[in-house]
């Protein structure tokens, strides 16, 4: 099968609309197709990866733990835009830890989240064959 670079662009907050949840559902299903997958988080999408999410008060499911399972699906490239974090008063410390085991490096645990600049994000997008924007 052809292998393409799939980039899932997440621009919306995790709750308030369904985009973030339904994006993650595509990522999980798409993992079965053995494509080269990356996720991008920008604008309010950076809130999707914040730690300590608690949805008890709004009656919807907290799906943020699912991000930590992505490594098991070979989804190991989560790009977060530095400017979007800064604009919202967030830093790397506000994000949850998402790790994967690198099979090419004796299954060493490595972080999946990479914080990159807006200019680098443009390069990531330019390098993608298929961009799905949510």
């Amino acid at each position: 099968m052809t292998i393409k670079n799939f980039l899932y662009v997440n621009r919306k907050a995790p709750y308030g609309t369904i985009y973030a949840l339904e994006s993650l559902e595509v990522v999980l299903i798409g993992a079965a197709f053995d494509q080269d997958v990356s996720l991008a988080f920008l604008d309010d999408g950076v809130f999707q990866l914040t730690k300590g999410q608690n949805t008890d008060g709004i009656g919807v499911k907290n799906f943020s733990p699912t991000f930590r399972a992505l490594g098991d699906y070979d989804v190991t490239k989560l790009y977060v835009e530095a400017e979007s974090l800064a604009e919202r008063g967030l830093t790397a410390d506000d994000l949850q830890e998402v790790m994967y085991e690198d099979e090419d490096d004796d299954w060493a645990e490595k972080p999946s989240i990479k914080i990159i600049s807006r200019a680098e994000m443009a390069d990531v997008m330019a390098g993608a064959d298929v961009v799905l924007s949510f």
């Binding site: 798409g30 197709f33 064959d129 298929v130 961009v131």
Partner: peptide
Amino acid sequence: SGLGQLIEMGIQTDRLVTFG
């Protein structure tokens, strides 16, 4: 049908265009 059809479409077409 399932979301697999979306991924398959991304693989099999030259360009994927989203309207949203």
